[in-house]
Design a protein around this nucleic acid. Structure first.
Length: 107
DNA sequence: CGAGTGACCGCAA
DNA sequence: ATTGCGGCCACTC
């Protein structure tokens, strides 16, 4: 039962990210119980469910990730399609679009 | 089956 | 302010 694997937890959170919002690998890893396992989140993103909105997942710098199909350029296109504003340096306003479980009722 | 890599983060000097 | 290194879990070859 409660043996929720790391991957299951990360995928669950990514699947809950609302449209127009972004999450960081470090926060996802921290919420999963391993604040130092941000690399694994990236690994899951590369080998995990391709149906999950990994495009809403960015690094702590608010910059897009490499290795994505099409590179940062392709990643940026998908983010803008979601209504997320991306800077010319392939970075999003993490301070404004950063989402985390519990802020939904913050409005 | 064993070993290495990976879309990262934090701290230290 | 910058640079360099270690750490964590899962997946692939």
């Amino acid at each position: 039962m409660s043996d929720a694997g790391f991957r299951q937890m990360v995928e669950a959170l990514v699947a809950q990210i609302p449209k127009g919002r972004v999450m960081t690998y470090g926060h996802l890893a921290a919420l999963c119980g391993s604040p130092r396992a941000a690399r694994i989140v990236g690994g899951i993103a590369h080998y995990g469910n391709p149906e999950l909105p990994w495009q809403r997942v960015v690094n702590k710098q608010g910059g897009l990730a490499s290795g994505y199909p099409g590179g940062k350029t392709g990643h940026q296109q998908h983010l803008e399609a979601e209504g997320i504003d991306v800077s010319d340096d392939h970075s999003v306003d993490i301070k404004k679009l950063l989402w985390q479980p519990g802020i939904e009722g913050r409005r």
